[in-house]
Design a protein around this nucleic acid. Sequence first.
DNA 1: TCCCGAAAACTGGTAGGACCAGTGATCGAT
DNA 2: ATCGATCACTGGTCCTACCAGTTTTCGGGA
Lengths: 247, 247
Amino acid sequence: MENHAQPVSQVIANQIEQMVLDGALKPAQKIPSERQLSNRLGVSRTIVREALHALQGRGVIKTRHGQGSFVARIVPEPEDESPLMQLFFSHSRTLFDLYEVREQLEGQAAYLTAQRGTEEDFYRITQAFEAMERADPLANAELDHAFHKAIVEASHNAVLVHILASLKKLLLHSVHASVANLSHRPQVRQQIDKHHRQIYHAIINRQAQWAQKAAAAHVRHVCESIREIEKQERHIIREAITDTAAG
Amino acid sequence: MENHAQPVSQVIANQIEQMVLDGALKPAQKIPSERQLSNRLGVSRTIVREALHALQGRGVIKTRHGQGSFVARIVPEPEDESPLMQLFFSHSRTLFDLYEVREQLEGQAAYLTAQRGTEEDFYRITQAFEAMERADPLANAELDHAFHKAIVEASHNAVLVHILASLKKLLLHSVHASVANLSHRPQVRQQIDKHHRQIYHAIINRQAQWAQKAAAAHVRHVCESIREIEKQERHIIREAITDTAAG
DNA sequence: TCCCGAAAACTGGTAGGACCAGTGATCGAT
DNA sequence: ATCGATCACTGGTCCTACCAGTTTTCGGGA
């Protein structure tokens, strides 16, 4: 006995929206193509498209021609090289502000994960962690991201997941934060690895307080390292200029 | 030379929404049928339907099978905040996730303010605090708002200010009723006032850790009070229903 | 004449096929 | 190994047909 009280397209839209709210669909994640959904759900592509348009109207998803549909970000799309972004990051001050906020939220994510993470969550985190440990030498930034992402997503707080995803995207867009630079400095890299191990073990041992502190300390350390590097660069530039002036 | 930068369905949706905002289409007014629009606009009915679904998602129109589509929204609504954020606020399940994040951020704001607040900042905070204390009886939500705002802005972290401003703005719109209710419960109100005093004194004495804990505890308390009220309301409703059934 | 009920003429909802238009990966030639 | 064309994806648009509600119409019976 199918209740045709509301159209199928609305049912589908609500279902998908619920999945986003529950965190089953992560921010910026690609959702199946219209034709795939059409097949799996046993409805026409027309209906799927109408559902997706409704979600688009609600701001839940973002559709790009030729690419697919993606879960929307909680902060409005940065718009490539928008003047706002330029302004935002022209002052490295706001970059550090971002890091300050991130420090707090990463800490909380670690705390919550240590508290409520399931065995499945821990399995995923362990995999990410071990992959990172194995590939240590070149220190792929991807793996670093994956590790933190696994932790955040295990916090079971959809809002936290969305906000941190947005923050990270903002940080990536910033020209300053070339994390690549960090990895090339041995002592910094070593400290980062140590932090990662601390965070990991605190979480799987469900030591929430510890996990929080370790995660916060980690972000703070990264931020301060960047600050340090910037200072050094400024110094080098100044020296170069004075050299030129002297010569 | 039509730029196909954005899909036709979106163009149509925006056009119709604009007409509603301009007042060309009045609330509850019936808009032309899909087939009529299809003919007049020179596009397929499919496209018209997709546009209408988008508008439906935005809450601009309401469609009834066999009757047509009607303008729904009376309030133009600026829509300046992240739509996804609004969604998180509208579902009570994720509302608590939101509070969890806010707890952390308010805590950090208090911490930073206690640490780096200037005398001017403290003056503003003091004014807000004393105004709130004086006007205690009716417990105006505005003053509460102003007090927290003063603290956050004194944190000297632009990102934090921005995020918390967005959160609070949405909070005012969503659980406005609940907040009003909170003030009317003596013991809750008393606890809130106590928290405010703790936060205030910790900040002006530059006890950052304390300020952080007090602010976080404050938000957590508010959140749990709302949770409690919701539970009570559910209980009342259930009783009413069983009463009806019994009668 | 008036009233009722069936039919017709609307309304939106669903289906499936065909094709266009971007995007990205694949693979072949250089 | 590099570059470029091709191909297999993605969403965007159109069409045609049909189903399912709602309203109007209109004809036959009282």
